[in-house]
């Protein structure tokens, strides 16, 4: 009966694992709900803000504000948004792989790339792949306020304005649905008038009527009140920060969805495994009983 004992132990261990993954699934599900609510709430604001910024950037001379400047690419900063914890499927791996590919591409063109990370996992992967990591910010499990990323956005804006970086890319995972998330690299700075198609499903729909508008919209220039400087000075940093914030929220929602799916798959796999093992256990038990009966019958036959 050694076989059945072994199998029983495995069943018990897998049952315990299942309990853990199930619990983690439930925790992630509730975190995901919160994160998804956050991301959906700000999405229309962020999309609209980005449209306003790009619209302004296209129609305003770059001399009015340092954030509108376009320089030849010498050095690029990439913000990598990942999660603090693992066990969320390919979430961190995918975005990090995308960033590493991008870095290689730029290095071939002799453009220096520096990495700024938000989230421990991304930092660890960046370190392993020998990327040029210059700053790491601590990420909250659930980002709920724009003030939580203000240090990061300050650093970014400052370094772009003083010319350290000629371009800023934002690497995050776009939340499309709780099943689908897409790693995305978005060009944050310099501001380019071509519209990005990556801020979620809603963003994509808006893009269509956006195109239409921009064609006849491009014919005018804006007037600024009270002054161009004052408006741009307030508007651009604020709305660019909003984009970073939105990207963090998208990543948050994606992370928790990815973890929930990973944990659900793990729980399902555990159930399958338990079923298989139970079957094997019963067969082994049955075989044992049959063998014992055969032995008894055999013993009795020998006595007669």
């Amino acid at each position: 009966m050694a076989g059945t004992k072994e199998i029983r132990r495995r069943i018990r261990s897998i049952t315990n694992t299942k309990k853990i993954t199930k619990a983690m699934e439930l925790v992630s599900a509730s975190k995901m709900r919160k994160a998804v609510n956050n991301v959906l709430a700000t999405r229309s604001y962020a999309n609209l803000a980005w449209r306003v910024v790009l619209d302004l950037a296209g129609k305003t001379e770059s001399q009015y504000h340092p954030l509108l400047e376009k320089r030849p690419l010498k050095k690029i900063g990439i913000i990598l948004i990942s999660s603090n914890r693992g066990l969320c499927g390919g979430f961190n791996g995918q975005i990090a792989a995308k960033v590493v590919r991008e870095i290689k591409k730029y290095e071939k063109e002799n453009i220096a790339v520096e990495l700024i990370t938000l989230g421990k996992r991304g930092r660890d992967i960046a370190r392993k792949s020998n990327a040029n990591l210059i700053a790491d910010f601590i990420k909250q499990d659930l980002t709920v306020s724009i003030t939580q990323i203000s240090a990061l956005s300050h650093l970014i804006l400052e370094n772009f304005i003083n010319g350290t970086y000629d371009s800023i890319l934002l690497a995050y995972t776009d939340f499309i649905s709780s099943i689908t998330q897409k790693p995305v690299l978005k060009k944050l700075l310099p501001l380019e008038t071509e519209l990005d198609e990556n801020l979620g499903v809603i963003g994509r729909q808006q893009k269509i009527d956006n195109r239409k508008q921009t064609t006849d919209d491009n014919l005018f220039e804006y007037i600024f009140e009270p002054t161009t400087d004052e408006v741009l000075e307030k508007l651009l940093p604020r709305l660019i920060e909003m984009q970073i914030y939105q990207a963090v929220l998208e990543s948050d929602a994606s992370e928790h969805s990815a973890r929930m799916m990973a944990m659900r798959n793990a729980s399902d796999a555990a159930v399958d495994m338990i079923d298989d093992l139970t079957l094997a256990f019963n067969q082994a038990r049955q075989a044992g009983i049959t063998r014992e009966i055969a032995e008894i019958a055999g013993g009795k036959a020998a006595l007669e």
Binding site: V52, L56, F220, E221, Y222, I223, F224, E225, P226, E230, V231, K234, L235
Partner: peptide, 10 residues
């Protein structure tokens, strides 16, 4: 009002 001149303000 409708047909207002394009404007950006705080």
């Amino acid at each position: 009002l409708p047909n207002h001149i394009p404007l950006v303000s705080l």
